[in-house]
Amino acid sequence: MTDTLEALDFDLMTTQDTSKLTHITDCPDDKESAQAWVDEARANGLEVTALCGHVWIPESDPIKHPVCQTCLDIAQIRLA
């Protein structure tokens, strides 16, 4: 799996404003779902880490932004 991840273009992170993207997160072990975790983080002002490594405090409606391609690539690798 490491070889596959190294092949991804992580330069995208430095050339794109990641705050304007919708990111995908893992579900922490102690949470019911990733959505529940993001909702809790939004309500309490907690930081969330995306699959791509972007760290943010959820505030905006994710439907308003395009999905981070790096997060999508990583999620697809994990599902494969």
Rank of each mutant, 00 (worst) to 15 (best):
V48T: 12
L12F: 13
P66G: 11
S19W: 07
S60E: 14
D73A: 14
M13V: 09
T4Q: 06
S19V: 09
S19H: 10
G45D: 05
F10C: 08
A50F: 07
P66F: 11
E59H: 00
P62E: 09
L12W: 05
G45I: 05
E40D: 10
R42H: 07
E47C: 13
A36V: 06
I24A: 04
P58R: 13
R78H: 11
P62G: 09
D11G: 12
D11W: 05
W37P: 00
R78F: 06
T18M: 15
A34C: 08
W56I: 04
M1D: 06
D39N: 14
L8T: 02
W37V: 02
L72I: 12
K20L: 15
T2A: 10
T15L: 02
P66L: 11
L8W: 02
A50C: 13
E6G: 05
C52G: 08
V67K: 15
I74P: 01
S19D: 15
T25Q: 02
T70V: 15
I63L: 12
P62L: 09
D39M: 04
E40A: 03
D17R: 09
L21E: 04
T25V: 15
S60P: 00
T70P: 01
L51P: 01
D26R: 12
I77D: 00
I24W: 03
A34S: 14
L21I: 03
E59C: 00
M1S: 11
A43Y: 02
L5Q: 08
T4R: 08
I24E: 01
E6W: 05
D3L: 07
D73Y: 00
T25K: 01
S33I: 02
W56Y: 15
E32I: 09
G45A: 07
A75D: 15
I57M: 13
V67G: 06
M1W: 01
F10N: 06
T18C: 12
W37E: 11
V67S: 13
E47V: 14
I57T: 15
N44G: 08
T4W: 00
T2I: 10
L12A: 05
P66D: 15
S19R: 13
D3K: 10
H65L: 12
T49C: 11
K31C: 13
H23A: 11
A34W: 06
C27Y: 01
G45C: 10
R78W: 06
L46N: 05
I24T: 05
E6T: 06
E6F: 06
N44H: 11
L12Q: 12
C68R: 09
I63M: 11
I74W: 00
L72R: 13
T4A: 12
L5M: 14
T18K: 13
I57S: 11
P28G: 02
E32S: 09
I57C: 12
T25R: 00
E59Q: 10
D11V: 04
T49G: 07
D9H: 13
D3W: 02
D39Q: 10
T49Q: 15
K20C: 14
A43K: 09
T25Y: 02
H23Y: 06
C27F: 00
T22W: 03
S33P: 04
R78E: 13
D17Y: 04
A75C: 09
W56A: 07
H23L: 03
W56H: 04
D61L: 08
A75W: 07
L79D: 11
Q35P: 00
M1H: 04
T4E: 10
V67Q: 15
G53M: 07
K20M: 14
D17S: 11
L8P: 11
